[in-house]
Design a protein around this nucleic acid. Structure first.
Lengths: 239, 239
DNA sequence: GGGGGTATGTGTGTTCGCGCACAGACTCGG
DNA sequence: CCGAGTCTGTGCGCGAACACACATACCCCC
């Protein structure tokens, strides 16, 4: 499969959506963008909150999480340097229906919602790209929805690690099993078992909240095909 | 709960998205709209197909279906008179990532993709409404994603029947268990069991591909809270 | 009005993941 | 260096849904 190459996400550490903008438009936006550091576990907004800023991750990752109850949460989407968190604002809605949680520490470009609304009222490249990104995100959410329904925990864990690795551009990142259990929508014990299987195969190393990817290729084999599908959709929209 | 009223979806049989447009804009669109009949089981487009038309259902329902394999399919979204099928076109993408299947026969307003692209390049009410609808659909897909992961088949079946009832404005509709199994992402036998439970409670009647809702209130009680959440999001965006 | 196709009910054994409980194992600070 | 807190591995019983296999019931059409 074509996507089974090594981790290539273009200029690692630069938001690819912004980087795709034509120079003049990027320059127009620049004064409205601020670089911010996102720390692991930080909540950017909760469902119902008025969204004050949108975020274009550079090397950080933001998880979109749906909550059914205190114990039933599930990551429905992952936003990295290919996209933007806070799409609701672009779509003319004040608040999101999901929680935005920093799942990978790093930097992001931040823009005020007011600025987004101003920009969204101009039919420029940003508008066009955000439109296409919306479609890409919808496709991602749809695919993971079916994936979460049908595929085994092991395969989903592999997929998730690969997706994180793509966006974080690091082979090692902090990540407790408790946290992973929310992402995958399974119990912590289930993660322990699945992670143990991957570790036994020398694909990852796991040590008290720090996970290291040892063998990407191997992970791709254990992962379901959904990884390739989502990656293709994500990479394609920027063209 | 406020949503636990009887089935009210405004003017039943008229697409609410179009109906919300200001008169002058609606008039501008009218020449580009054709009324078409959609028959049960008809596929409007497959993943990868170039989308030729978008559809604004009146009293029909279009299911968005994600396919992982021949046997693993799942409805990820439902489009009725509150929305439009073929959002990808609006978002500047030629093809959808899901299959659009007619799940409830009826009529819809059809518009060519070219016309949508022309309209989408004008920042009018249609543009605004489609933006907001996109958000609503994303919310729906996100919510059902978590719902499908966590909630029991019985509750999900009840939710699905209510959502269908809302859009079809009929208490009786053709629907095989085989079909339902794709919608809910479970086996046919699982549907049989769940439907049996609802039938035993006099909430529905089931007879060889025809299902009748006997007690909406009762269904709402059996359904998970996701129904109310999705309905609220759907109804709200049109304001 | 009988037969074939379709739709539905049911049964058995299996598997995945859950809930709970608890035992290590590592970290970090005093 | 020790203890408290956190993180991870594991075992057991259970329940929901699975896969497969049939039995039945109904419709429609020739």
């Amino acid at each position: 499969m074509a996507v089974l190459n090594s981790n290539n996400n273009g200029d690692a550490g630069v938001n690819r959506l912004l980087a795709t903008l034509p120079k003049n438009e990027y320059k127009r936006l620049l004064p409205k963008l601020t670089t911010v550091s996102l720390v692991l576990g930080q909540t950017l907004y909760e469902p119902g909150d008025v969204i004050k800023h949108v975020y274009f991750p550079n090397d950080s990752i933001i998880s979109l999480i749906s909550k059914l109850s205190e114990t039933s949460r599930l990551e429905v989407g992952m936003v990295g340097n290919e996209g933007m968190a806070g799409l609701a604002v672009f779509m003319g809605v004040k608040s999101s229906s999901t929680r935005a949680l920093v799942q990978g520490a790093g930097t992001a470009m931040r823009m005020s919602s007011a600025a987004v609304r101003t920009e969204a009222n101009q039919l420029g490249s940003l508008h066009h790209l955000l439109h296409r990104y919306s479609h890409s995100l919808l496709a991602q959410v749809s695919q993971s929805s079916a994936c979460n329904r049908y595929h085994m925990v092991n395969a989903r864990l592999a997929r998730w690690l690969l997706m994180t690795n793509d966006r974080l551009a690091a082979k090692e990142f902090p990540l407790t099993q408790e946290f992973l259990s929310t992402m995958l929508g399974v119990r912590r014990e289930g993660v322990s078992k699945a992670a143990g299987a991957l570790q036994a195969g020398k694909l990852i190393r796991y040590s008290r909240g720090v996970i290291t990817i040892l063998n990407r290729r191997g992970l791709e084999e254990k992962s379901c095909h959904c990884y390739a599908i989502i990656k293709a959709e994500t990479d394609e929209y920027l063209n």
